[in-house]
């Protein structure tokens, strides 16, 4: 397995936020995780990204134990719900940010960023500052900035949460396209049921710090806890 998370526990004071978290993920796959606010999703992602230290447990990436590795050495990029574009840099420089940090030659940076702008359907927007971009464009630049560094694992924390329905749908399609084009392995956290089903090759459900990963989508749909059945009943009742 590419990513193996073994018995991770994390508490803040007396409150146990993540309880015995264990799951694995194959390379080039997306595990979407559904969960309500406050169920421990963000803490789980930040722990995997190295931004929070776990109380116990292990994280293996490509067979290497990275539990104690600093976030900057993990090659795992964490994407927030907010696009967090650097306000002093234009779209091109935002995408090039990670590449410049890694001291990639200038020519290669230009080539990679131009290719990324094309993949993100952002041609002609390179010189625009973040304030001149729409919500969807900003989120795309944020994606580009994360993907351009070729991360081993991408952690997405409700990345489309702040977008309107139409933009959200377009971004979901774009994300699917990008994961195939750039062979991305990712954990996609969302509280949107439809998005969870659409985005993941595998689906998990998190509640009160406990994550349950389903064998396939059928198991997920049939589990009454996930809320899929009640959704089906609701929409069926409208007929």
């Amino acid at each position: 397995m590419f990513l193996e998370v073994q018995h991770i526990v994390k508490s803040f004071g007396a409150e146990k936020v993540v309880k015995d978290l264990s799951f694995s993920l194959q390379a080039k796959q997306t595990l979407s995780i559904l969960g309500k606010s406050g169920c421990g999703k963000t803490t789980m992602l930040k722990t995997i990204g190295g931004l929070i230290s776990p109380d116990s447990g292990k994280i293996l990436l490509n067979g290497v134990d990275i539990t104690e590795t600093k976030p900057e050495k993990r090659n795992i990029v964490y994407l927030y719900q907010e696009d967090l574009l650097f306000p002093h840099l234009n779209a091109f420089e935002n995408i090039a940010f990670g590449l410049r940090i890694k001291k990639i030659p200038e020519g290669l940076i230009k080539e990679k960023v131009q290719h990324m702008l094309h993949s993100l359907e952002l041609e002609g927007q390179a010189d625009k500052m973040p304030t001149q971009l729409s919500g969807g464009q900003r989120q795309r630049v944020s994606f580009g900035r994360a993907i351009s560094t070729n991360p081993s694992l991408l952690l997405l924390d409700e990345p489309f949460g702040s977008l309107d329905t139409g933009t959200r749908q377009r971004m979901q399609e774009l994300f699917k396209k990008l994961t195939e084009e750039f062979d991305i392995t990712s954990l996609f956290v969302t509280h949107d049921l439809k998005e969870a089903v659409l985005m993941g090759n595998q689906i998990g459900f998190m509640q009160d710090g406990v994550l349950k990963v389903y064998e396939d989508k059928k198991d997920f749909i049939q589990d009454p806890q996930t809320g899929v059945q009640s959704e089906i009943e609701f929409w069926g009742g409208l007929k």
Binding site: L51, P71, E72, Y78, F86, T149, L155
Partner: peptide
């Protein structure tokens, strides 16, 4: 919190 998020983001992008 936003500045903290920027710091975390730079760290995950590989910045010291």
């Amino acid at each position: 919190e936003k500045v903290k998020s920027y710091e975390d983001l730079v760290a995950t992008l590989g910045g010291n």
